[in-house]
């Protein structure tokens, strides 16, 4: 194959990866932006989505498309419910203290992962794509399903953008993100917003996983990579900024495949992880600059609500 078509193929593959990464990272970004906590168990919600999709498509095996559509509807709801319970039972009781939440979500990570290991087993399982259709380009044929993944992710992102910027619920979320106390005194049920955001964040990860599971396979350890990648994306995109996150997801998703062609994947990961750590240290507002609603976990950014909140939470 010539270089042009080859690059085209690589970009298509990159777009598929970017699409899934967008959804997953957006979930993490919402949770971080609104609740100001880091959810380390986010990758496990991704994994749960994939595993539940396998389970549901096996239950409804009359037609692959039917099972898949059912999975796409039921699995995220189940994951959302689990996240809802986790929020009510654990995070709320910690009053969303950032450090305690990280430790608790590490615990949650193990609990979910190992429960899946016990019930689902250690084998990787394949899920059938809802349809088989090849799009014939002049140089190669390409899986129609993968193109659908890109389109579906784009539609979901548009929907999310609409809800966040144009509806009452989105307004409540943004108000809570911007200033928790002020929102509360204006009658916004902040705690309920937190719970909903946590559940919705998990559902985004689950949807991303369900879309990708016919391409990859479901496995109980599959959550780690999306977690690290989402971290990277959210940090580069500017913590809590949705636009930045989407831009970073596309950048990372597209470049990941291309870099891996030229360098050893391990070296690529080493370099990118180091760079991201340095971004967090030296440029915590991310590469895409401060956005409209931007929160920093940096306590010495004075005059920002986050700083006051940090001081309050660290008062012993």
């Amino acid at each position: 194959m010539d270089f042009g078509p080859f690059l085209f193929l690589a970009s298509l593959e990159g777009l598929v990866q970017a699409a899934v990464l967008c959804l997953t990272a957006l979930g993490l970004c919402l949770v971080f932006g609104v609740m100001r906590v880091v959810n380390v168990a986010h990758g496990e919600f991704f994994m749960l989505g994939a595993v539940l999709a396998w389970w549901i498509t096996n239950l409804i095996s009359t037609h692959p498309a039917l099972g898949f559509v059912a999975a796409l509807i039921i699995a995220p709801v189940m994951v959302g419910l689990i996240a809802f319970c986790a929020d009510r039972l654990i995070l709320k009781r910690l009053s969303y203290n950032p450090e305690a939440t990280i430790v608790a979500t590490i615990g949650l990570l193990y609990v979910i992962q190992q429960t899946v290991l016990i019930t689902f087993g250690a084998d990787a399982r394949a899920v059938n794509a809802p349809f088989y259709f090849r799009v014939q380009f002049p140089w190669f044929g390409y899986s129609g399903y993968k193109l659908l993944v890109i389109v579906a992710a784009a539609l979901i992102l548009l929907g999310a953008w609409f809800v966040i910027t144009r509806t009452r619920v989105g307004l409540m979320m943004r108000a809570t993100q911007y200033d928790r106390e002020m929102a509360q005194s204006f009658g916004i049920p902040v705690e309920r917003v937190y719970t909903v955001v946590f559940a919705v964040g998990a559902m985004f990860a689950a949807v991303g996983a369900i879309l990708v599971v016919p391409i990859r396979q479901a496995h109980y350890l599959m959550g780690l990579d999306p977690l690290l990648l989402s971290f990277i994306v959210v940090i580069i995109g500017g913590l809590g900024s949705i636009r930045g996150t989407v831009a970073a997801a596309i950048l990372i998703g597209m470049s990941d495949g291309i870099i891996s062609v030229f360098f050893s994947p391990t070296l690529a990961k080493m370099v990118s992880t180091t760079l991201v750590a340095f971004i967090l240290v030296f440029k915590p507002e991310g590469l895409f600059g401060p956005s409209v609603v931007n929160f920093r976990i940096y306590p010495n950014h004075k005059g920002h609500k986050g700083y006051k909140r940090h001081l309050r939470l660290n008062k012993k």
Binding site: V38, E99, I102, L228, I235, T274, P299, H310
Partner: peptide, 20 residues
């Protein structure tokens, strides 16, 4: 490197450096 941050950022930076 990492002590320029505190709190959550310190946790994530140390985690990432350890991953490297």
């Amino acid at each position: 490197i990492a002590l320029r941050t505190t709190g959550v950022a310190f946790m994530i930076v140390t985690m990432m450096l350890a991953q490297v």
